[in-house]
Write a protein that binds this DNA or RNA. Structure first.
Lengths: 109, 109
DNA sequence: CGGGATACCCAGAGCGTCTAGGCATGGAGG
DNA sequence: CCTCCATGCCTAGACGCTCTGGGTATCCCG
């Protein structure tokens, strides 16, 4: 319904595994929590995105066991993925600043 | 190529005419300048968006003459459009903060 | 006369997100 | 016991937006 997320999800996912492997479900929960619930990750967006990122070579996947003892697929960054995270953060910063200058400032005509 | 813009363009356009009517071409230039060229508006995105916003009732259009004496279509906000701008700004603020907390901070696992 | 800026428009491709399902396990509460 | 919810993964198809790559027209400048 929002649409804001469009084009941003990939970057968020990559960042979620920047500090170590996580499984898909955990990635979604982490993003929601870290964003203070400002961002909600639908599973129908999450899993296709993970598959996409793996195919692009930013992530690798491996089956393992979750903290609760369940079967789960863990993702970790590749070297290319790590470069991508940095690039995304820089681009986002610039873009978000631009949008905020427009939407949040009440300057002249 | 970026993708960041996805879902944000409508809000930017509405904000561009928040302080008074502008024509399409002028809207694009204003957004680019105001964002310090962080955002580039393609005409193939712009005009469909304007049409969409008009159909949704956020904008009304009217033919007129540009500052340079050319034929141009000027857009202005409707009451609903004005409400929408406020709502978009609030939503963007919350969303962008969430994303920035994730992408730009280097906190713990 | 050629190129660039101004100003509008369209068709179709492309792609990412969401809806709405499905499957399986385990723990908690009625 | 049985139902519900959380955990955990997945898919097909709809949907919607942006972009590519065209097109038109006027005007100014070199």
């Amino acid at each position: 319904m929002n649409g804001w997320l469009h084009g941003t999800l990939d970057a968020l996912i990559l960042k979620a595994v920047d500090r170590g492997p996580r499984h898909g479900y955990g990635i979604a929960r982490w993003i929601e929590e870290t964003s203070d619930d400002a961002i909600r990750i639908e599973e129908g967006s999450l899993y296709p995105a993970l598959y996409r990122l793996e195919k692009k070579g930013w992530l690798t996947a491996e089956w393992g066991t979750s903290e609760l003892g369940r079967r789960a697929k863990f993702y970790r960054l590749t070297a290319a993925g790590r470069r991508r995270v940095h690039r995304d953060a820089a681009e986002w910063s610039r873009f978000a600043e631009g949008v905020s200058r427009i939407l949040l400032k009440a300057e002249e005509a």
